[in-house]
Design a protein around this nucleic acid. Sequence first.
DNA 1: AATGATACTCGGC
DNA 2: TTACGGCCGAGTATCATT
Length: 348
Amino acid sequence: MYLHIDMDYFFAQIEEKRRPMLKDKIIAVCVFSGRTEDSGVISTVNYPGRALGIKSGMPIATAKKKAPPADSIFLPVDREAYTQASMFIDGIIRKGCDKVVQASIDEWHVEDSDAIQKAPKIKEEIEKKSGLTCSIGVAPSLLGAKMGASKCKPDGLLILDKESEEKLISGSDVEKVPGIGKKTGEALRALGALKIQDISKIDPGNLVETFGRKTGSWLHELSLGEYKSELGEEKEQEEVSRIGTLKMKTRDSYILLEKLSDLEPEAKEWLMEKKKSYKTLTIIFITEDLRTHTKSTTFSHPLPWNSSTEAEKKKLIEEFLSENPMMIRRIGIRFGNFLDLGGQTTLF
DNA sequence: AATGATACTCGGC
DNA sequence: TTACGGCCGAGTATCATT
């Protein structure tokens, strides 16, 4: 059996715990972009906020219109604190279970033959030691466990047998299934599938044509109740990026380079800490229409974290500007294609 | 034509 | 209808090499 452990409104719950007096107020954790006073989006909001229609991804200004100022607080993200809490919880889960894969900052996948007994114990222990609640789904497949957890949240525990798992998945609205987002969901609805079971009526060839080979056949199998789940291997992070929003949209390469020089040290610090060298450098551009574009180069030899990137950054920016006439709103830098520096030391 | 590497977009959280 | 961050991996497209 599989467990899916999912922390409840994680970032906001941590902020709530830090400030117990705010417990019943609306707590929204925000990514302030700095472009204007309230530009940016909501990262997470607690349940009183959700009750008023505030959601992740919503612009902060829109959320503020829904929340009475006296009963609400809008806080900036404190990633370091959330990462620390995440690592602490990771330790608790690993102590109790053998096969554990951390799936994101606030989710874990576990395979355990004794899952039904262990699930309530882990839940209690997490709450006792961290003060934070989570929701846990237990099911014969990982997909069932995930959907079970989201069905019973917050602070829930749901155990599904083969039959109830099958029912939950096949009867679910398409966009409730992890892996099916807005785009895929809309496309499926356009093909006449509202629920997962409806997908079985669509010709598999049509699915592959619309969604590509991988997703198309995955959807087809899903609709027939075929979802094999294996716990993926725990993978090392494959790239690191830092991205930021410009005060004003621009096409001035000097301003763009200046912004990158704010972002780059943080990404490089990560490389240094993890002792990684990299082969691929990518510049990320978000144009005024909010579309994302990238330009990248791969070097024939890995470069150490402290290597200069000035010439390449300039080249990639100029290349992008020459082929896209739009103004740029956000810019970022990404390092990837890592090689462990191992015992080697950096050269000076 | 097959294989592997690289470039880029999509979209989940 | 639009408002709108900062990440990341998955998947696909394209290019290079044989």
